[in-house]
Computed example of a mutant assay.
Amino acid sequence: MDAQYDIVVSGGGPAGLTAAAAFGAAGFRVICLDPAPPVTERDADGSDLRTTALLQPARNLLERCGLWPRLAPHATPLQTMRIIDAGGDTPQPRVTRDFVASDISDQPFGWNLPNWLLRRELAAQLAELPTVEFRPGTGTRSLFTRTGEARVGLSDGSRLRARLVVAADGRDSPMRTAAGIGVRRMTYGQKALAFAVTHSVPHDNVSTEIHRSGGPFTLVPLPDYQGRPSSAVVWLDHGRKVLERAQLDAPAFEAEMTERSCGVLGPLALASRRTVWPIISQHAEQMAGERLALMAEAAHVMPPIGAQGLNMSLADLAGLLDLAEAAPQDLGDAGMLERYHRKRMRDVRMRVTGIDALNRASIAGAQPLRDLRAMGLGALHALPPVRQGLMRMGLGLT
């Protein structure tokens, strides 16, 4: 007989692990599945060297689920978001504007953690929850639904039954595909390099996004590494250039990235291996199907601008968790999932569209377009109500 759960979570990335922990803490019987075990060491093959800035609403959710005490000791607060336009003839700052958390709150904008460390701590939390089973090495393959339940086929040939399936299984989600839910996708010809660096100038908890052409170069604060200030870097550019840079020897790469950073933190030294990630925008045509809720990259994918990725995923989770806790007897039924779709779809479309526009502006290579971008940055920052409104919107507080 098929094993029975309240919730099957498909996907063991940060979003899926958080969903399993949240629903487990709320008293639901949960199983979380992923075809690959999580890589939980910084320098192990396959580790995710990107970082996530957990914004204020995300931290509130993590506190509610009992996760934040485990993550807080590893988190670096982000007090200032600095945007630099370096789109002149030479790679030098020509417009620098700071967006400061104290303008709108007594808390930092967010708290930065490496993705590999998030996986480590979240997996450890699941191991302590009696209501949750985490089964890495087993993926979801098929989905059959009817009014009262879902049946999920697994890669090991077994099947599960559940009242709700939560698809947090990536941009090529097998559960979304099985449900026949389509996606709308935009491509840019970009890729991203993600890696860690050390530098001579302290970052002072400032996240710095530098725009020139091809895409932003972003430095996000990390704890000191081997006694030196350290930051995570995400560097977007045209795909061919990214692949070429990924093959450079360390001295040549360090010289190129230091120039691209405009030297704002002094000479940069590579402090990890380099990983390459494709850049697209994508959102599902609906957030739910019969007995199925989409979240995270199964529902939306965006370029890494403005720390929206995992924070939008946790906004999905918060909305779904609210509905499940308000009426647990209705878990996974058509009414609950329709409310979830309505609650999240407008915000998803708005943010995907907004990040798409920002990324296209950051790609601009023609000088007149670079000049227009710099003028726009200065104008938006100069008006306090507009500046504060943008910050609140970015945090998901409006």
Rank of each mutant, 00 (worst) to 15 (best):
N60C: 08
G170E: 08
L222M: 14
A366S: 06
C32N: 15
G88R: 04
P385W: 07
D249C: 07
A20D: 06
D2H: 12
G157R: 09
E325V: 12
E325I: 10
R212A: 15
T258W: 04
M375Q: 09
L49F: 12
I104P: 03
R159E: 15
Q247W: 02
T138Q: 13
M375F: 08
D249A: 07
D316V: 10
G365P: 02
W111C: 02
P14T: 10
R159C: 09
T145Y: 03
P221L: 14
S173K: 06
S47V: 08
R42W: 06
L143C: 15
H238C: 09
L17R: 11
G139P: 03
R146K: 13
A374M: 08
A307H: 07
V206F: 01
G306K: 05
P130I: 12
M175R: 06
N112G: 00
Q107F: 03
D103V: 02
P216S: 09
R59W: 02
G309P: 03
L243D: 15
S272H: 07
A44I: 01
I83E: 01
R349S: 01
K191L: 13
G137S: 10
Q247T: 15
L236E: 09
K343C: 04
M1Y: 01
T398R: 10
I363S: 08
R240T: 10
G306T: 02
G189S: 04
V183S: 13
I181F: 08
P385G: 11
Q125A: 14
N115G: 12
G396R: 01
D45Y: 09
E285L: 06
N359L: 14
T218I: 05
A366W: 10
R50F: 11
S102N: 14
D98P: 07
H300M: 07
L323K: 09
L292S: 06
Q107Y: 03
G354N: 09
G396E: 10
A21C: 15
V166S: 07
T18G: 00
G266W: 05
D45E: 14
T40V: 11
A296T: 04
G16P: 10
W277A: 03
R29A: 12
R291W: 04
S362K: 08
L397V: 01
A269I: 03
H74V: 00
V166N: 00
W111A: 05
P130Y: 01
R344C: 05
Y225N: 11
V95L: 14
G306Y: 02
S313H: 03
A26H: 10
G215V: 06
L160Y: 05
I83G: 07
I83A: 15
F144N: 14
I7T: 07
E297Q: 15
A379N: 01
A127M: 00
R176Y: 09
V233K: 05
Q329D: 12
F134E: 02
P93V: 09
E121R: 02
H283Q: 14
L321C: 07
R163V: 05
S105P: 06
P130V: 04
T275V: 12
E285K: 00
R163C: 11
A101P: 10
Q226K: 14
A252F: 05
A318Y: 01
Y188Q: 08
G214P: 11
G335R: 15
G11T: 05
R159I: 00
P328R: 14
V30A: 10
H341L: 02
